[in-house]
Structure formats: structure tokens, C-alpha cells
């Protein structure tokens, strides 16, 4: 479904991605793990068309994403829920959700998806006419995921959905991620919280300073002593 081949990205002179190669099959939940600055968010921003690779190919459902504008990539169903939530604080919860479907022209489908988001995150229905800024951190993360779902993703890219949230909320968010996975949504999940991510993922890639250093199924990675030591060794892995 999605394939990156030898993708190189620079921030000015800084070589941020040094030849990333990875693949996501339809229906898979793939985790992208690594420390701060490993290039996880850069990878997602490059897939989304916000950053452009200097070298390499990104194919998604047979199309070359490096030549398609960011808004067209959204229309193709590759949706990113960015790090730090980035909800629109001055817009109401309803307007935020509606923004997720900004490119859609099927009002009935949008309405159906709105109901679906409310079943996943009932709290959003109660907050519908509050501004996004008045929500708690956890509610904002739910809104950010709900907003991304309103775009009807075929590939959902989640960037650090558990960042800065209380353990109970993290659990709730990961429950929903698992639910989405079960419903067949293809997911590329970026996490620093490796333990949590490996519990839900099918496969994972491990990034270090712009390179993929390890990849494999969750079983393989969990059995790897290095992963165990560096990423699962602590109590939380963050």
C-alpha cells in the first residue's frame, strides 16, 4: 500500500533522513519506533507531502507521492494526525471535526463518519460546541484522531498519540487504535513509547539518526536483546 525506497530528506544542510526504506501492507498496523530526533516525524511529513525528499521514491497505491501536492495526498486517503495534536483551538469541536472532512463532497458519508467518531469518543459529542482550546489534553488527542478519521483515511499516520497523556488516557487511545486496526484501517504509528506500540503493532521499524536500523515482526523485535535493553528496558520506555 505504501512503500518508501531510499528516501533522503534534508533540512537545509542537515541530512535528516539518510535513505529510509519501509513498507506498509493494506490492513497492517506498523510501528515506527526510535528516540527523539531519529527522523520519525520527518518521515511522516515527507509522506504527507509537507517535506520533499531530495532522493528516493514514495509510492502509495501505485502513485508517486513525491510529485503530488499535500492536499491531493489527503484526497487519496493518506491522512496524518500530527504530533502535538495541533487541533484548531479557536474552532469548536464540531468545526474541528468538520475540518477533517474539508475535502469531502459526500455529506451523508461525512454525517455517518461523525456518528462513528462519536461512538469511538463519546466525550466529543458532549463537547461539540466548546472551543478546542477548552478541552483537556486527552480530549484534544481524541479530537485530533477524530478529525483525522473524518477524512476517511485508508492509511492513517499517527504521530506520538500518547505523548504527554496520563496512563489511563493512553490506554483509551490505544484501545481505539486497536479497534481501528480491527476494522481494517491501515495504520502507521509513530511512537517513543515502544512497549505500548509493540503491544498493538503487527510489525515495526526502528529508526536511529535517519536510518532504519532494525525491522521485523513484533515477535522478532521483542525477542531481540538490543530492543529489549534500549527500548523496553525501562519501566515505560519513554
Amino acid at each position: 500500500m505504501l512503500k518508501l525506497e531510499d528516501v533522503h530528506v534534508y533540512y537545509g544542510q542537515v541530512h535528516a533522513l539518510k535513505g529510509i526504506t519501509l513498507e506498509v501492507q493494506p490492513g497492517e498496523l506498523v510501528a515506527l519506533l526510535g528516540a527523539n530526533g531519529a527522523g520519525k516525524s520527518t518521515t511522516l511529513m515527507t509522506i504527507s507531502g509537507i517535506l520533499r525528499p531530495r532522493r528516493g521514491q514514495i509510492t502509495y497505491e501505485g502513485r508517486d507521492l513525491t510529485k503530488i501536492s499535500a492536499d491531493e495526498i489527503v484526497r487519496l486517503g493518506a491522512i496524518q494526525c500530527p504530533e502535538g495534536r495541533r487541533i484548531f483551538g479557536g474552532l469548536t469541536v464540531w468545526e474541528n471535526l468538520r475540518m477533517g472532512a474539508v475535502r469531502r463532497r459526500d455529506p451523508q458519508g461525512v454525517q455517518r463518519d461523525l456518528e462513528w467518531v462519536f461512538t469511538l469518543f463519546p466525550i466529543l459529542k458532549q463537547r461539540l460546541h466548546q472551543s478546542g482550546a477548552t478541552l483537556s489534553g486527552g480530549e484534544q488527542q481524541m479530537l485530533a484522531i477524530g478529525r483525522a478519521l473524518m477524512a476517511r483515511p485508508r492509511l492513517l499516520m499517527l504521530d506520538e498519540p500518547s505523548l504527554g497523556l496520563a496512563p489511563l488516557v493512553v490506554q483509551a487511545i490505544f484501545d481505539v487504535i486497536q479497534q481501528l486496526h480491527a476494522q481494517g484501517v491501515t495504520i502507521l504509528l509513530v511512537e517513543q513509547n515502544a512497549r505500548q506500540a509493540l503491544q498493538v503493532a503487527d510489525r515495526a521499524y526502528l529508526l536511529e539518526t535517519g536510518r532504519v536500523v532494525l525491522s521485523g515482526t513484533v515477535a522478532e523485535l521483542s525477542a531481540n536483546p538490543e530492543v529489549e535493553r534500549f527500548y523496553l528496558g525501562g519501566t515505560t520506555g519513554s
Partner: peptide
């Protein structure tokens, strides 16, 4: 209107608006 809401959204966070498919 959707165009108006998109305009307010873009004013608040242009990157997030782009990730939602807003044509800048």
C-alpha cells in the same frame, strides 16, 4: 461555510490545515 471555517483554521495552524487537505 466550509471555505470560511477552513480560512479560520488556516489562520490558526497552517500546517495542521494543510494536513487536513486545505489547499493553501
Amino acid at each position: 461555510t466550509m471555505a470560511g471555517i477552513a480560512m479560520r483554521a488556516a489562520a490558526q495552524d497552517l500546517l495542521a490545515a494543510r494536513l487536513m487537505g486545505v489547499n493553501v
